[in-house]
Design a binder for these strands. Structure first.
Length: 554
RNA sequence: UGCCCGAUAGUAUAAUGGUAGUACAUCAGACUCUGACUCUGAGUGUCUAGGUUCGAAUCCUGGUCGGGUAACCA
C-alpha cells in the first residue's frame, strides 16, 4: 500500500486519507447510475475510475442504481447498465444496490430529522417556494410553516406518506439556512409526492426522496469511503455533508470528491440529448454505432480493453475540456492492430480480368492472418482470372503522388502476383467498366525473381469465390467539434448528414463465411471492421470501426 | 449579480518550492508485400500583473478568461 503511486488527484486524496488513518484504512467506492438512459463513454470513465481506484487500493466497488425518480426510470435501463458494466470488464460481485433499497431507512431518518426540529412540511406551491428561495444576492424568506412543531410535522408527514395529499400539495424540507450564499442550503427539498409506481417498490410509496437527500445516506449505509462524482455536484457537497453530520455515529465518514466529466469532440454526451437523438430518430437506437454510448461503441467494434485504456490515458482532473476523438481512435487502432484477423475486402469494386491467366483455372495463395501475431497463422485465399479491385486504387490519368494502378503501371496483388494494366474497358458513355491486366507468373507469392520492385500493393478479391457483403461506413455524428458549445446553432442543426454511408455491393474473401456477430477484423488497407448483428446467414454486414491511418495525401 | 471551481504545447495530462516531461494530433525522415504497424527526428506550452523566496507552473494578492450553481431532475 505504501508504494502506490497516485495517478490523479483523487488517488492522491485517498493516499492522504489512508495516511491519516481514516475509515479503518478501507477504500470503498460506488458507481451510482440513474436508470433513465443508456451508459455512455463518459460513464465508462467514471466506471474505470471507481472500480479501478478501489482495486488499486485493495478496496471494493458497489453498483448502485440511483432510482429515486420513478417518473424517468425503467428496468430496461437497469438491464442495459448491468450489461455494459460487465462488458467493460468490471464486477460488483454481490454488491448490487438500489437507492430504493433505502426508502424505509430514509423515511425513518426523515422522521428523526423532524423530531430534531430539522425538517418540516411545506404546503406552499412550487412557484412560491421558488420565489422565497431568493436570489444569489438576496436572502430567501422563511416559509410560514418553517417553525411548525415536530409533533405537527410528524403527523402531516405521515399523512403525506399515506397518500392524503395530491402531487405537488406539499413537500418535506430540511431546515438549514434561507440566507446561505449557497442556494442549495436554503431549506432544500427532501421529499416530494409522486403518485407513480416505481420499477422496484411498485405502489408502496407515493413520496420519493430527492437526490440530495438519498445519495449521501446511501453512501453512508453502504460504508462508502470515497464518493466520486462529477463537478456539477461540487456545490451540493455542503448539503451532502450536512446530512452526513446528522447521521454520523462513529469515525467513519464518506467523502464526496468531484472530477470533470468527459467531453469528446464531434459528439454530445448528455443523456437528455442522446435520448432525443434516439427518440426523434436521428439515429437508429441507443446502440447505433455512431452513438457515444457503450452499447454503440460495442456495436461499432470497440473493445473493452480499448475503452479502459482510453479512460486511463485521458486522466482525471477538475479542468473541463474536450478530449480529441483521435485519442479514442488511437486506442482502438492500437488494440485491434495487435489482435485483429486480417482479411481482404473490396468495398467499391471494379472488375479486373487477367487476360493471360487461363480461363477456368484457379489456385490458392497463402496469406498471413496477422503480421503482428505469428501465432494466428496463415490462411489460403483463392485466386482466379477475374478479380475485383478497389476503384480508388486505379487512376486513368494518375497524379504525381499516385503510385497505385494506372495504364501501363505494374503493382502487386497482396500475397499473389504482380499485374500490369494493359487496357481500360469503357461502355458507350465512356464509363470504365473493367480493366484488362496481365500477370507475371514468375511473381507468385508477391516477389519478382529478377528483383524488380513495385511501389504499391493492392488488396483484391477473386470474383468467383467472393462473398457479397454490406459495409457500413460511419463518420462523426456532428460537423462541429463542440456541438454543445456552439452559440449560434442548436446542436441538432450540426448533425452530420453523411454520418452513415451504406455500401451494398462489396466483396469479401470466403474466409469471412460464418463470422460471428461483433467479431473484429482488419480489412487490409481499409481499416478495422466488425460483424454487425444485422448479419444473416445470407448476407454479411460489417461496420467500419475506424479507418487505418492514411498518409496518402502526402 | 452572490457563492463555488478551474486555467501548463493544437488536445488531454505530469512535474507534491529545485532541469517544464509524457501521450494523442501535426510535420519531416527511415523501414515496409497494408500509403498500416514500427523506428528516428522536429516544432509548439506554464492566462496576466505584482509579491514571498537563493529559486515559483507550484505559495500569497489583484485582475482576465472559462465552467458550475438559484429543478417537487440526477
Amino acid at each position: 500500500m505504501e508504494n502506490i503511486v497516485p495517478k490523479n488527484f483523487i488517488q492522491q486524496q485517498i493516499v492522504d486519507d489512508l495516511a491519516a488513518g481514516k475509515n479503518g484504512n478501507r477504500v470503498h467506492t460506488r458507481f451510482p447510475p440513474e436508470p433513465n438512459g443508456y451508459l455512455h463513454i463518459g460513464h465508462a470513465k467514471s466506471i474505470c475510475l471507481n472500480f479501478g481506484t478501489a482495486k488499486l487500493f485493495g478496496g471494493l466497488t458497489n453498483l448502485r442504481f440511483d432510482d429515486t425518480n420513478p417518473v424517468k426510470e425503467d428496468t430496461e435501463y437497469v438491464d442495459s447498465i448491468m450489461e455494459d458494466v460487465k462488458w467493460l470488464g468490471f464486477d460488483w460481485e454481490d454488491r448490487l444496490y438500489y437507492a430504493s433499497d433505502y426508502f424505509d431507512k430514509l423515511y425513518d431518518f426523515a422522521v428523526e430529522l423532524i423530531k430534531r426540529g430539522k425538517a418540516y412540511v411545506d404546503f406552499q406551491s412550487q412557484e412560491v417556494i421558488s420565489e422565497q428561495r431568493g436570489t444569489p444576492t438576496k436572502a430567501g424568506v422563511e416559509s410560514p410553516t418553517r417553525n411548525t412543531s415536530p409533533e405537527e410535522n410528524l403527523r402531516i408527514f405521515e399523512e403525506m406518506r399515506n397518500g392524503k395529499y395530491n402531487e405537488g400539495a406539499c413537500v418535506l424540507r430540511a431546515k438549514i439556512d434561507m440566507a446561505s450564499p449557497n442556494m442549495h442550503l436554503r431549506d432544500p427539498l427532501m421529499y416530494r409526492i409522486l403518485k407513480q409506481s416505481h420499477h422496484r417498490t411498485g405502489d408502496k410509496w407515493c413520496i420519493y426522496p430527492m437526490y440530495d437527500y438519498a445519495h449521501g445516506q446511501s453512501d453512508y449505509w453502504e460504508g462508502i469511503t470515497h464518493s466520486i462524482c462529477t463537478l456539477e455536484f461540487e456545490v451540493h457537497r455542503p448539503l451532502y455533508d450536512w446530512f452526513v453530520d446528522e447521521l454520523q455515529e462513529t469515525d467513519y465518514r464518506p467523502r464526496q470528491i468531484e472530477f470533470s466529466r468527459l467531453n469528446i469532440t464531434y459528439t454530445v454526451m448528455s443523456k437528455r440529448k442522446l435520448l432525443q437523438l434516439v427518440k426523434e430518430g436521428y439515429v437508429k437506437d441507443w446502440d447505433d454505432p455512431r452513438m457515444p454510448t457503450i452499447s454503440g461503441l460495442r456495436r461499432r467494434g470497440y473493445t473493452p480493453e480499448s475503452i479502459r485504456n482510453f479512460a486511463d490515458m485521458i486522466g482525471v482532473t477538475k479542468v473541463d475540456g474536450v478530449t480529441d476523438v483521435a485519442m479514442l481512435e488511437f486506442c482502438i487502432r492500437e488494440d485491434l492492430n495487435k489482435r485483429a484477423q486480417r482479411l481482404m475486402c473490396v468495398t467499391d469494386p471494379i472488375k479486373v480480368i487477367i487476360t493471360n491467366y487461363p480461363e477456368g483455372q484457379s489456385e490458392a495463395v497463402e496469406a498471413i492472418n496477422n503480421p503482428e501475431d505469428e501465432s494466428m497463422g496463415k490462411r489460403k485465399v483463392p485466386f482466379s482470372r477475374v478479380i475485383y479491385l478497389e476503384k480508388e486504387d486505379f487512376m486513368e490519368e494518375p497524379t504525381n503522388k499516385f503510385y497505385r494502378l494506372a495504364p501501363g503501371k505494374e503493382v502487386r496483388l497482396r500475397y499473389a502476383y504482380f499485374i500490369k494494366c494493359q487496357e481500360v474497358i469503357k461502355d458507350e458513355q465512356g464509363k470504365i467498366v473493367a480493366l484488362h491486366c496481365t500477370y507475371d507468373p514468375e511473381t507468385k507469392g508477391g516477389n519478382a525473381p529478377d528483383g524488380r520492385k513495385v511501389k504499391a500493393t493492392l488488396h483484391w478479391v477473386a470474383a468467383e469465390t467472393a462473398l457479397p457483403c454490406e459495409v457500413r461506413l460511419y463518420d462523426r455524428l456532428f460537423t462541429d467539434a463542440d456541438p454543445d458549445g456552439n452559440k449560434e446553432k442548436d446542436y441538432l442543426e450540426l448533425l452530420n448528414p453523411d454520418s452513415l454511408q451504406v455500401l451494398d455491393h462489396c466483396f469479401i474473401e470466403p474466409f469471412a463465411k460464418g463470422a460471428p456477430a461483433l467479431s473484429n477484423y482488419q480489412f487490409e488497407r481499409l481499416g478495422y471492421f466488425n460483424v454487425d448483428p444485422d448479419t444473416t446467414p445470407e448476407k454479411l454486414v460489417f461496420n467500419r470501426t475506424v479507418s487505418l491511418k492514411d498518409n496518402s495525401k502526402k
